[in-house]
Simulated assay, not measured.
Amino acid sequence: MRLLVANDDGIDAKGIYTLVKELEKVHEVIVVAPNNQRSACGHSITITSPIIIKACKLEGIKSKAYSISGTPADCVRMGLDMLSEGKVDMVVSGINRGLNVGTDVIYSGTVSAAMEAAIYEVPSLAVSQETNGDEEQYEVAAKYALKVLEMLKDKPLGEDVVLNLNVPLCSEEEIKGLKVCKVGKTSYRHSYFEYVDEKGRGYNVRGTMNEKKFEEDDVDYIREKYVTLTPLHFDLTNFQLLKAVEDIVR
């Protein structure tokens, strides 16, 4: 397959390097990633300033690579519209440094890059790896991404499908299996730490996930050391309430 690989951690991130290294063993790959860290930027796009594109060389990577001064969604747009030579079969976004489970998918630049592909009617896979402080490893997640692509090769799900893959921080031997599951509902307790510098007073924000009951979702299964795979879509319509709202306004 011809793959476009993007991310939100930037062109120099370990995750995208490991992912491309694995995927290009089997597939044709082009890399388009932000020139710096763009985590948690959601589905933002650049409209008020020019987007700068630079060809770059990733050491040990044979695939063509470009950095752009834009967001993850911009990367997919420009990759599909300008930089890929011919039809792209699938967009792969990641490997993100940190999970994208539960309601975190709303804020995720990694997932948003995959969503942008779906808007273009190109199927996509978002890949995220659990980390713990400075402890991070991406080889297992890259292998699972390749496995999922091989599964989809002969059984496509549709042009506007986004699959969200999350991998726990453990050895490949410790992983209990792959679970196809729903998105969980997560909430956080936020702490605000004040600081003052020459620019003025500001706050650093840290969030701690609240406890939740076991509901067989991506949050729960990651804790049980399963790799999770969740189908997503950009249609945010609440179909359960569609008729009720229609009756109210009629």
Results as ranks from 00 to 15, higher is better:
4 L>Q: 14
4 L>H: 12
5 V>L: 11
5 V>D: 12
5 V>T: 14
6 A>N: 08
12 D>P: 01
13 A>P: 14
13 A>V: 15
13 A>F: 15
13 A>W: 13
14 K>F: 13
19 L>H: 10
25 K>S: 14
26 V>I: 13
31 V>F: 09
32 V>Q: 10
36 N>Q: 14
38 R>W: 04
39 S>A: 14
40 A>M: 02
41 C>G: 10
42 G>W: 04
43 H>L: 07
50 P>L: 01
52 I>F: 04
52 I>P: 00
65 A>V: 07
68 I>M: 03
75 C>L: 10
81 D>K: 13
81 D>Q: 12
82 M>L: 10
88 V>H: 02
91 V>S: 07
95 I>F: 04
97 R>W: 04
99 L>V: 14
100 N>K: 06
101 V>G: 04
111 V>T: 09
112 S>K: 06
116 E>K: 15
117 A>D: 08
117 A>G: 09
120 Y>F: 14
121 E>S: 14
122 V>A: 10
122 V>M: 11
122 V>Q: 07
125 L>N: 08
130 E>Y: 11
130 E>V: 12
130 E>R: 01
131 T>W: 00
131 T>A: 10
134 D>W: 02
141 A>L: 05
143 K>W: 00
152 L>K: 00
154 D>H: 09
157 L>C: 00
158 G>C: 03
162 V>A: 02
163 L>Y: 00
164 N>E: 02
165 L>V: 01
166 N>F: 02
168 P>I: 07
168 P>Y: 05
175 I>M: 01
185 K>T: 13
188 Y>S: 03
189 R>N: 12
191 S>M: 08
198 E>I: 11
203 Y>E: 15
205 V>S: 09
216 E>S: 15
216 E>T: 12
221 Y>N: 06
229 L>S: 12
229 L>I: 13
235 D>E: 07
236 L>E: 01
237 T>H: 05
243 K>G: 11
243 K>E: 11
245 V>W: 05
250 R>K: 14
